[in-house]
Amino acid sequence: MELAGAIITLIGSIFLFLGALGLLRMPDIFNRMQAGTKATTLGSILFLAGTALAHAECTCIGKIVILILFIIFTNPLSSHALARAAHHIGIPLAKKTVKDDLAKDEKKNKNSQTGEGE
């Protein structure tokens, strides 16, 4: 049991490491967030689950389930808020970027609004 917990914790920390590597390697803020959110979510979940397995004798499993649920609910929210703010203040996307529907639609909205004002 303890061994299984240790292995799961190790896998979790590998995902956390890959997330950190992704932060360094990705070209712009949105791609960095991709690496940041997903890897940290699964990494933390595995880390906590591994801890619960390794210390199965304690009564902390309920608490760990709650921690995992809170991480699942809050992690994407924070990255969504960051991405939205970043796009809103106009941080440029990487050169590799193919298209940007949001900027296009925002421009269209602005044009139609000024068109009504005239």
Binding site: L21, G22, M26, F30, H87, L93, K96, T97, V98
Partner: peptide
């Protein structure tokens, strides 16, 4: 996670990002 991890460790960084609706 496996997908993003694969992209991160690949030296060529195979991404083609963009924002879609």
């Amino acid at each position: 996670n496996l997908d993003v991890a694969r992209r991160v460790v690949n030296p060529k960084l195979p991404i083609k990002p963009g924002i879609v609706k």
